[in-house]
Amino acid sequence: MNATVENVIRISGLRTQFGSNVIHDDLDLDVRRGEVLGVVGGSGSGKSVLLNTIIGLNQPAAGSIEVLGTKTQGLSRKESRTLRSRWGVLFQQGALFSSLTVAENIQVPLKEYTDLSREMRNAVTALKISMSGLPMDVCSKYPSELSGGMKKRAGLARALALDPEILFLDEPTAGLDPIGAAAFDDLIADLQKSLNLTVVMVTHDLDSLYAITDRIAVLIDKKVTIGSLEELRQNPHPWIQDYFHGPRARAATETQQETQVEV
């Protein structure tokens, strides 16, 4: 990385609210290029809301959000399309279009944003399918014929279709078995290195937090506390202490240390 770290996402003074219910208040968050940022927080702390606000599904009540040097509010249709082609989003259940096959799903952004020939488009689709670790025969299947893990991989392939610079993941390992979850973590880490992605990941999975994140943003009291795992372990806030020193966290730390010893 360069000496001057480039922030691909800059959020300052963000406030989101539904009616009189304030979710985030005066929240600041910077995401650096090339890092994997985990977003954690208790249920109802607004992790998914934060993600939705960054990607423009939610309008903030106050504050500014800048993604890849562009303010996300008040964009023209064209500017907003350009910005949206530079990030990819993987929703919790994959959010594949149910009336399209996996291959057609991946081709939706390719058809919308590029003028690739059919041949080239098929080649790119095949590349993305194998990138996400799916066998080639899934391409003609419909989402309803896939297992949960495969849906997520197919959703990831679609999110990666345009080689985005930022990848947003909403609970990528939720609902996967531990082996599947670990494989998915590896896949994300692998893709992140190869494609030099910036990854913002909402997760509850302590194992994935320990395995692949560079920094962790904790949503507490409507604000963000950010730091590396070590820094957060030293943080005296009771919720953070509970989170990183609870029984599950201890188990995850142990597994992580064991794997490191083996390596």
């Binding site: 291959a103 098929n122 080649a123 689709t125 095949a126 590349l127 399918i129 194998s130 990138m131 080639m136 025969d137 391409c139 003609s140 190869s194 494609l195």
Partner: peptide, 14 residues
């Protein structure tokens, strides 16, 4: 490039 070479082998949509 290494990545594309590694996984690009034999990938074509049927």
């Amino acid at each position: 490039l290494d990545y594309a070479a590694a996984i690009g082998r034999g990938t074509a949509l049927p």
